[in-house]
């Protein structure tokens, strides 16, 4: 990572190759437009190389890179006025957080089958119904290799908040898919 900071293009190409797909997926979850998601993904990597010298090796490089991706999406949504400043991270924090075990617990057979059998568009639709902060935390957990602490750093919230956001996101997705499935059955 220090090589990228020194302008090593080969090292940068390796990071680009490894992270372009997860970052594209993360961004698409917010903008729901393939072309815009690609443009923003390109912008993230160009920005990373442009400001590479500002990276301080106190944090992992991937944490820094995901923070750049997160800020790029937020800037884009704010410009489009799809996101109000108060939408993020001010409605979720609560003192009592669910345990990691609860968040990471295995799905039951029926829950796993529910997700597996759902169409991609349906899952994407359920994701879009989450609050922006739940969606952000969930997508970082899905696509990045960041720890809960690193997700908290990226989103500038406490680890407790991250756990709460993830727990609620998981419950929200399962509830949404259940509803959709029931609705499909009725139809």
């Amino acid at each position: 990572m220090l090589k990228v900071r020194q302008g090593d293009k080969k090292a940068f190409a390796q990071i680009y190759g490894k992270l372009k797909k997860p970052i594209m997926s993360y961004i698409f979850g917010f903008v729901l437009n393939h072309g815009v998601a690609e443009d923003l993904t390109q912008e993230v990597f160009l920005k990373v190389y442009r400001v590479r010298e500002t990276y301080e090796p106190t944090a992992r490089f991937s944490t820094w890179l995901w923070t750049v991706a997160h800020n790029t999406v937020i800037d884009h949504l704010r410009k489009k006025q799809d996101l109000l400043a108060d939408d993020l991270f001010h409605d979720e924090a609560e003192p009592k957080s669910p345990s990691i075990e609860l968040i990471q617990s295995e799905l039951s057979d029926s829950e796993a089958a529910l997700i597996e059998n759902a169409r991609k568009e349906l899952v994407q639709d359920c994701l879009s119904r989450l609050s922006p902060s739940q969606k952000d935390a969930l997508q970082l957990r899905i696509f990045s290799d960041l720890t809960y602490e690193e997700i908290a750093t990226t989103l500038q919230v406490s680890v407790t908040s991250v756990k709460t956001l993830l727990y609620r996101a998981k419950q929200g997705i399962l509830k949404c898919l259940n509803k959709k499935e029931s609705g499909d059955e009725r139809a």
Binding site: Y16, K20, K21, P22, M24, S25, F28, G29, H34, A37, E38, T41, Q42, F45, L46, Y49, Q104, E106, L107, S108, D109, E111, A112, I115, E116, A118, K120, V123, Q124, L127, L138, Q139, R141, I142, F143, K170, I173
Partner: peptide, 30 residues
């Protein structure tokens, strides 16, 4: 064995890869 990890399952549903010419366009811009 059935995948029961919520986050991994969600990844299979939400992963959205870039187009084939994404790399060419990116490196041209770079």
């Amino acid at each position: 064995m059935k995948e029961r990890d919520f986050f991994k399952l969600m990844n299979t549903k939400l992963a959205h890869p870039p187009s084939d010419d994404f790399d060419r366009r990116f490196w041209a811009n770079f």
